[in-house]
């Protein structure tokens, strides 16, 4: 469904002495995403994982390489075609609050993609929005509020409702559960797992957290310094990771239980 081929993204900036420097944020990345599978991309800060998300959604242009959606090159699509294609390609971003326009009520925020991608009358629209709100397990009162009046978890749920409103084939979650309280995070991940069965969407989950990656996806890509260093299909356990960087990440994970030396 999605094919990324030799994708590169360079940023040019200037260093302290005014010399031109280039940073290779995404470096020769290739992978294939198949329908109805779940993927997670793991990387630490500066690995280029967010840049990759912005390239796939065409928010930013790549320096070189190809992104093909349903065998069609994205860079060859016209502006309008690309805009309509976004109905198939949704993204949920890290910060729920900033992804919602502070001056627009929740109802209209959720309505936006529906109005952009389909033409239904007001009554159907209202029904659909209320239905979506229930799907993300929020009370209907929130529709009449502004983003800053909601909690972080509620904002996140609204962003999810917005993304699934157009029944996309593919949803990218860019650090979508980081920064949330652990109990809220768990609930949202479980919600996403339930929704996936219902929507039949493909998830592409970008996270710095191997725990989250393993919880939500079967296929895991590990990214470091702009490159994909390891790709594992149908992961079963931590021992499937072979690359030394991945193993270092696993070793750094916090223990599930306290060690015995702490018992005093």
């Amino acid at each position: 469904m999605l094919e990324v081929k030799e994708l590169c993204k360079q940023y040019t900036g200037r260093d302290k002495k005014g010399r031109k420097t280039t940073i290779q944020a995404v470096d020769n990345v290739s992978f294939i995403v198949e329908r109805n599978k779940s993927y997670a991309l793991v990387g630490e800060s500066g690995s280029g994982k967010s840049t990759l998300a912005r390239l796939i959604t065409h928010i930013e242009m790549s320096t070189s390489g190809q992104i093909k959606i349903d065998n069609k090159d994205m860079s060859k699509m016209g502006k309008r075609e690309l805009r309509m294609k976004r109905a198939d390609f949704q993204m949920v971003m890290q910060d729920g609050q900033s992804s919602l326009d502070p001056r627009i009520k929740i109802y209209d925020s959720i309505a936006e993609p529906i109005r952009n991608f389909s033409s239904i009358n007001k009554k159907e629209e209202k029904e659909k929005i209320e239905n979506l709100t229930q799907k993300v397990e929020l009370p209907l009162e929130v529709l009449n509020r502004f983003p800053h009046e909601l909690s972080g978890g509620q904002q996140k749920r609204i962003c999810i409702a917005r993304a699934i409103s157009v029944r996309p084939k593919f949803i990218i979650f860019d650090e979508a559960v980081s920064g949330l309280d652990v109990t809220v995070r768990k609930k949202i991940l479980d919600l996403l797992l339930r929704l996936r069965n219902e929507l039949k969407s493909t998830y592409f989950f970008i996270t710095h957290d191997i725990d989250v990656a393993m919880y939500i996806a079967k296929n895991i890509l590990v990214m470091k310094d702009g490159q994909i260093v390891e790709q594992i299909e149908n992961i079963k356990s931590f021992s499937d990771f072979k690359h030394e960087y991945s193993q270092m990440l696993i070793k750094s994970l916090l223990p599930k239980l306290p060690s015995n030396t702490q018992r005093k």
Binding site: V182, T183, D211, Y215, S237, L253, K256
Partner: peptide, 23 residues
């Protein structure tokens, strides 16, 4: 190993670690 309140149990459960992992 012996949390008493529901809230502590919930917090502990909210962790996502796969069980078979040994550290």
């Amino acid at each position: 190993y012996n949390p008493k309140t529901e809230y502590t149990k919930e917090l502990l459960k909210a962790r996502l670690l796969a069980d078979e992992v040994s550290y």
